[in-house]
Simulated scan of single mutants.
Amino acid sequence: MKITVLSGGVGGARFIRGLRQHVRSALPDGAAGSTAELTAIVNTGDDMWLTGVRIAPDLDSIMYTLAGENDEERGWGRIGETERVSAELRAYGVGWPWFTLGDLDLGTHLARTSLLRDGLPLSEVTRRITSRWDLGATLLPATDDEVETHVVVDDAGTSMHFQEWWTRHRAALPARAFVQHRVEAARPAPGVLEAIGSADVILVAPSNPVVSIGTVLGIPGIREAIAAAPAPVVGVSPIIAGAVVRGMADACLSAIGVATSAQAVAAHYGARSAGGLLDAWLVDQADAAAVPAVEAAGIRATAVPLWMRDPESSARLAADALAFATR
């Protein structure tokens, strides 16, 4: 079975980890050498240059989580991090004092930057970096091109990088719009369209619908490939009982006029039969009442437990998503 996941952020990382655990336990020879292939197409709109290094937050979050190196308490960065280099950078007045990079994390960024400076595309750089660990999944950046998300914060068109709006201001500045710079000229990274076209199942992780999944879909060619794919497309709601599971996706949804509800996000994605994204949608049991309305919009729906409290509950959610896709 070939499984392709559109993903980004902590929600995507935890969902993919659960999916890997389920695949390894439930599919034949899932631990090694099996026909089960797991590919994640990852948002790169959060990426940026800072203090001379290229940072790829979503790729790194997923890599660290699958490698067992992610700091689960903070939700980002490496286990056992120190921050001596960031302290030195602050003393020199370099970089963003509110955006702290751990020393181990900086090692990843330096390795990525060195390989990029050698002329390698991000997809090949990612392949080399992730080969350090047995991740049980292939991570593909949505594009090799630099497509960075900026946030327009006033009527005059003032904008800032998404990371500044998200990390420094904690999404407290009302967003007027999200702009992916140079997205029109971007191309899907090698392997992305193939992973979509050859998939047996396409899953949409419970990631931010606007700046994670929305950025992936904004790369020319990706949405069209999904529309033409023979595989079912099943999404997992990032909203439970009218609240975001993690982060500040509600601020992003409000900026584009979408309510913070499982039903509204399903409608935002739309039914594939009507030119949208989804064939099916998983909502939490707390949102079971939304199932009829979602199905009336042409998207099959079911209510299952969505909370990913630990690897086991994440694996159960992944199993539910795959089971629903194969019905």
Rank of each mutant, 00 (worst) to 15 (best):
K2C: 05
K2W: 07
T4F: 12
V5F: 12
A13G: 04
F15G: 02
Q21P: 00
V23A: 15
S25D: 13
S25V: 01
S25C: 06
D29T: 01
L38H: 05
A40C: 10
N43S: 03
T44Y: 02
G45A: 15
L50R: 04
R54Q: 09
D58S: 09
I62N: 02
I62L: 15
A67M: 07
E69I: 07
N70E: 12
G75S: 11
I79T: 14
R84Q: 13
V85S: 04
V85F: 14
A87E: 14
E88Q: 13
Y92R: 14
G93S: 09
W98E: 14
F99G: 06
G102L: 13
D103I: 05
L104W: 06
H109P: 01
R112N: 06
T113Q: 03
L116R: 00
D118T: 01
D118W: 02
L120P: 00
L120E: 04
L122M: 09
T126I: 11
R128D: 06
I129Q: 06
I129E: 02
I129T: 09
R132M: 08
R132N: 05
R132G: 07
W133I: 06
D134R: 14
T138C: 13
L139E: 07
D145M: 01
E146V: 12
V147Y: 08
V151W: 12
G157I: 12
Q163W: 10
V179E: 15
H181N: 12
P188Q: 11
G191W: 08
A195N: 10
I196M: 12
S198E: 15
A199F: 11
A199E: 05
D200Y: 13
L203M: 13
A205Q: 05
S207Y: 11
P209H: 09
V210F: 09
V211C: 02
G214Y: 10
L217T: 00
P220D: 08
G221Y: 10
R223S: 14
E224M: 06
G235C: 09
I239V: 15
I239D: 05
I240K: 02
I240D: 02
A241E: 08
G242K: 04
A243Y: 02
D250A: 14
D250S: 10
G257V: 11
T260L: 09
S261F: 07
S261I: 06
A264D: 10
V265C: 09
A267W: 05
G270H: 05
S273E: 11
L277D: 04
L277K: 01
A280E: 07
L282Y: 08
L282W: 09
D284M: 12
Q285P: 00
A293W: 02
A296F: 03
A297S: 13
G298H: 01
R300A: 15
A301T: 00
T302Q: 08
R309I: 04
E312D: 11
A318F: 10
A319F: 02
D320E: 12
L322Y: 03
T326K: 06
